[in-house]
Design a binder for these strands. Sequence first.
DNA 1: TTAAATTAAGATAAAAGAGTCTTAAATAAG
DNA 2: CTTATTTAAGACTCTTTTATCTTAATTTAA
Lengths: 148, 148
Amino acid sequence: MILSKSCVYAIRAALYVTANGKGSYVSIREIAEKLDIPFHFLTKILQTLTENNLMTSFRGAKGGVALARAEESISLIEIVKAIDGMDIFKECVLGLPNCGFDRPCPLHDEMVGVRDQIKQTFEQTTLGYLAKKTKDNNFRISALAISA
Amino acid sequence: MILSKSCVYAIRAALYVTANGKGSYVSIREIAEKLDIPFHFLTKILQTLTENNLMTSFRGAKGGVALARAEESISLIEIVKAIDGMDIFKECVLGLPNCGFDRPCPLHDEMVGVRDQIKQTFEQTTLGYLAKKTKDNNFRISALAISA
DNA sequence: TTAAATTAAGATAAAAGAGTCTTAAATAAG
DNA sequence: CTTATTTAAGACTCTTTTATCTTAATTTAA
Ligand code: SF4
Ligand code: SF4
C-alpha cells in the first residue's frame, strides 16, 4: 500500500548503497542479489534515480551506482518523487477528481491528517539517518538480515 | 493509494445506498450512473458485498441492493475487509515478508502509527455517520455533487 | 588489443487490476 | 402467460505494473 513496488525497491536499494557504498560504487547486480530484487528491473529503477540526480552511475568493470550527494542530505521524499511522483500526496482514500479542502469527500477530516503525516515522515527521513538506524538496531531491508 | 479502485467504488456505492435507500432497494444502474462507476464492474463489486452479508440484493423489476443491517452498525472496515482484505493493515511501506514488531524494517517506528490510525478510522467510521456528515456538509462522493 | 564486467536502452512477456460484453435467472406488472 | 426489468455469472478485453531478455556502449585489466 501507499508506494509502488518500484518505489519500495528504490528505497531499499538506496539504503543498501548508503550502508555499503562508502566512497566507491556498488554494482547493481550485488544490490539485486543481496536484496532479492529482479536485476534488470532494478537497473531501470536506479536509472531513474540517476536521471533525477539522486545517484551517479559508472559503466564498465568496477562500475555501479553511488549516492549523488551526502547521505544526510537525501530524504526519502526525493526518491518517492522520482519514482511514484508527488500526486500520491494530493489525493488519498476516495480519490475524487480535484478533491481537497474546497471539494472534500466525507473522509477528508479523518484522512488528510495521516496523509500529511506520511508525507512529513518521507520529507524528514534521510538516507543517512535511516541507514544508521538500520545498522544500530539490526533492522532489515530485505527478506534476509542486512548483515552478511 | 491505500485502497484499490474496487474498494473505493464499494465505499462510495454503500454511501449512496445509505443516503438514498431508506427502506427500499436501490438499483445498481442508478448507483452506477449517479456515481459515474462502470455498471458491470460495480455489479460484481456489490455482489461481493452481498456475499459478505453487508448488503442484500433483489432480482427482477424493482430490484436492487440495500444495506443488510442498520447503517450505524456497518463500519467502513467491513467493506475494506470484503473487497481488499485485511492484509493491507499488516504490512505497509516496505512490505517485507513477515514484517512486524519482531522483524521490523527501518521505517517501522515512523509508519506503524499512521497505519494503525488509518485502520482505526475505518473501524470507527460507520456508514450512518458518514452519510449524515455528507448530507449535513454537502460533501461529495462523486465527481458531481451528491444532490440531484 | 582483447576479454571481461558492467550500466544503458529497448523490446518483449507475464501478472494483476480495471473495465466490457453476453447470457442466464429471477421478479414484477400487464 | 408474456414482456420488461434487474441482478448473477462468466467470458473476454484493455491497461498498468512488474519482470525478463537481448543488444549496445562504456570501462577496467590482462
Ligand atoms: S480525504 Fe480529502 S484529499 Fe483524501 S480523497 Fe477525500 S477529499 Fe481527497
Ligand atoms: S513499517 Fe513495520 S509493518 Fe510497515 S513495512 Fe516496515 S516493518 Fe512492516
